[in-house]
């Protein structure tokens, strides 16, 4: 019986991947993995679904498109219709460039904003890392607090099998360096 989070630290992404698969096979729950760079295939190994962010992007883009279209149409032919160079008030072909730019702007900034909000990234946020050097060259796997099925020995064996460099409890970083 244990209610602390276990942290396994690896030196390579391959080890992390194989360890992740092994942990999942043994039925333990993975809380999170930490890597210094984006490791492709890790979400799959952890059994996580891909992000739904593209939908947000599409939505933002759509809003941008409609907004730009409306703004240009309204200002040019409703609010202040002026004869400019003999062209019709609603010079739709001329509005395309701005529609496109606003679409990209909204979609792009919307996606970034969504990322920051969903991942709770903001300036000055205090961060507690599960282990040292995970933003440099270490890879960490954090197991969720376990029920009775968890055994420390088994975990140590798993670590050894997958070339882990350390195994410690969360918050125990200083000691196990």
């Amino acid at each position: 019986m244990i209610d602390q989070r276990v942290v396994m630290v690896f030196e390579s992404a391959d080890d992390l991947m194989s360890a992740t698969r092994a942990v999942r096979e043994s039925g333990w729950k993975i809380e999170e993995a930490y890597t210094p760079y984006a490791v492709h295939g890790l979400d799959e190994a952890m059994g996580r679904a891909p992000s739904r962010l593209p939908y947000i992007t599409f939505l933002c883009g759509l809003v941008g498109t409609l907004l730009a279209l409306w703004l240009q149409h309204w200002t040019s032919s409703v609010s202040w219709p002026l004869n400019v160079g003999g062209k019709p008030f609603n010079s739709l072909p001329a509005f395309v460039p701005v529609i496109f730019e606003i679409m990209v702007l909204f979609a792009g900034l919307g996606s970034v904003a969504t990322l920051l909000i969903r991942s709770r990234l903001y300036p000055g946020k205090k961060v507690q890392l599960p282990s040292v050097d995970i933003t440099n060259h270490r890879f960490a796997l954090v197991l969720a607090p376990q029920d009775a099925s968890f055994s420390h020995d088994e975990a140590s064996q798993l670590c050894r099998r997958h070339n882990a460099v350390a195994l410690h409890f969360l918050g125990d970083i200083e000691n196990k360096k």
Binding site: L82, V84, G85
Partner: peptide
Amino acid sequence: ETVCPVLATVH
């Protein structure tokens, strides 16, 4: 007229 960005020349 077409190219003025601020509608400073119109018909």
